[in-house]
Amino acid sequence: MKNRINSTYVLELLERLLLTPSPSGFTQNIMKLAGEQAEKLGFPMTFTHKGGGIITIPGKDDSRVIGLSAHVDTLGAMVRSLKPNGTLRFTSVGGYMMGSVENEYCQIHTRDGRSYDGTILTSKPSVHVYPDARELKREEAVMEIRLDEKVKSADDVSALGIRVGDFVSFDPRAQFKENGFIKSRHLDDKAGVAALYGLIELLGREKLVPSCTLKLFISTYEEVGHGAAYLPPDIDELIAVDMGAMGDDLSCTEYDVSICAKDSSGPYDYAMTSQLIRLAERDGLSYAIDIYPQYGSDASAALRGGSNIRAALIGPGVHASHSMERTHSEAIWNTIALLAAYVAEPCDI
């Protein structure tokens, strides 16, 4: 199955997704892109009140519906206050280490449609000036954004149209290497979104009809915990497609599709997880089974939100999650291939 994936399409779409700012709550532009892509593939997208997208693909059996979810929202920030010296204090959107965004380029997006460039620094950014610059604890209270504008006061900043509550996006610094490595911020979960669209493109191009009707759910608030808290009520089971974590006590690599057996929301569905493992082994896919106690997904949100579903979690392995992330294209191909195998199987497992 992997050799039938349109790798050029997937990687080009992934780059466009990465270059489109979309911190949680500021996803209107990327959802427009997602809707246009779905339309081009022949499967129009409908939208929820929260701004998420639903793509329906009819199956051979329309009495059961399999949901596949991925989230386009990312980590980011919002302007918390305008400081007297013309810098911005910010508040985080999503959970990340402050040290992971220090010295990062960013954009401030005003509510009247303007964008301004800046850099995230501590309030003591130079070792030549501040003797405690190295030891300073990296936390919100000491972080600020230096604007690339001639500003010396809060009034100067206000004159640019920047206000409290404006969104801040981080420069993804996306790079696609010839050897297959992809390094960028926000591979969590734009690599998962690209994998879902790779599946849709494959189904449409080869005129493959899934066993059950599929509803692909593109969520917009996953990084703040309630992305798929609402699901269409006809969904019977949900596979969340999100990044696989790497590190101590974990077996996932940047080449694998991760199959998560348990995360902070508890164990995932036994039958679904077992089926995913069986299919990965049958098709010779590089995969890993892991437990992520400090991780939550769209499936977690759906279960906690009261959805009467079975749920599972898979996705491409990503190193340094919520920091300067990296994966390999092989992990994305393995993810698409496992999804394609799953949706081709009989509906009842």
Rank of each mutant, 00 (worst) to 15 (best):
S81N: 08
D62C: 04
G76N: 05
G35Q: 11
G51L: 10
T48K: 05
T74I: 00
R64L: 11
E36S: 08
L75A: 00
F47G: 03
K83C: 15
T27S: 09
A77P: 00
N85S: 13
D61W: 03
G59V: 12
S24M: 05
A34M: 14
K83M: 15
I30H: 03
S81R: 10
F43A: 03
G35Y: 08
M45F: 13
V79E: 01
Q37A: 01
M31W: 04
L82Q: 07
L75S: 00
K32P: 02
T48M: 11
L68C: 04
D61M: 03
T48S: 15
T56D: 14
I55N: 11
L82W: 04
T27W: 15
S69E: 12
L68E: 11
E36W: 03
I30P: 00
A70Q: 14
M45A: 15
A38L: 03
E36N: 12
R64H: 13
S69P: 03
D61G: 01
A34L: 14
A77E: 02
L41F: 05
M78K: 13
D73N: 02
K32H: 13
N29C: 07
H71T: 01
K32E: 15
S69W: 06
K60W: 06
I55K: 10
T56S: 15
G67M: 11
P58G: 10
G42M: 04
M31E: 09
G76I: 02
F47A: 14
T27A: 09
M31H: 07
P84S: 09
G59Q: 12
L68A: 06
F26W: 13
E36Y: 01
M31T: 15
H71P: 01
D61V: 03
P23H: 02
K60D: 09
G52K: 09
I57Y: 08
M45W: 10
G42N: 05
T74A: 03
V72D: 02
G52C: 09
Q37K: 11
R64A: 08
P44N: 11
L82I: 11
T46W: 12
L75K: 01
G51R: 07
I30K: 06
F47I: 12
R80L: 12
K60E: 14
T74S: 02
G25F: 11
I30W: 09
H49D: 15
T74N: 00
I57T: 07
T74D: 01
G76F: 02
F43P: 00
S63I: 02
G25H: 11
A77K: 00
F43I: 00
S22R: 09
A70H: 12
L33W: 06
F43K: 02
P58Y: 14
H49Q: 15
K50E: 15
L33I: 12
R80Y: 11
F47T: 14
K40I: 03
T27I: 09
H71S: 03
